[in-house]
Design a protein around this nucleic acid. Sequence first.
DNA 1: TTTCTTACA
DNA 2: TGTAAGAA
Length: 114
Amino acid sequence: MAIGELSSRTGASVRALRYYEQHGLLRSARTAAGHRRFPPADVETVRRIRLLLNAGFPLADVAWVIPCFDDEGVQLDACVADRIHAHLLVVEERMAELGEQQHAIHRLQQLVRA
DNA sequence: TTTCTTACA
DNA sequence: TGTAAGAA
């Protein structure tokens, strides 16, 4: 299917689709005019990509995890458990930092003269 | 009209 | 990632 169709079927922008392809997350054939042609299965692949991206995984990790989905796309191979856990730790670390910044901001607000 | 590539307030 | 520009 054309990139526009894949876009409307997945909700991902045409721009994002080209970006995914550029990073090896998607593969496409080309028409004589140079237009991309995506296989029907990519509709599901894009949904999986977005699932990982929404969880904050960097694109490089997404490329690594995508092939670990089972055929239905509902279960993940155990081999990616470590990556997922590592990412969780990164996110928790960020939350801790943000919490400290939040406190610092509160302290600053108390220094403001009424 | 849709898609392509390249570049950037 | 959005958007602009020029071409197919």
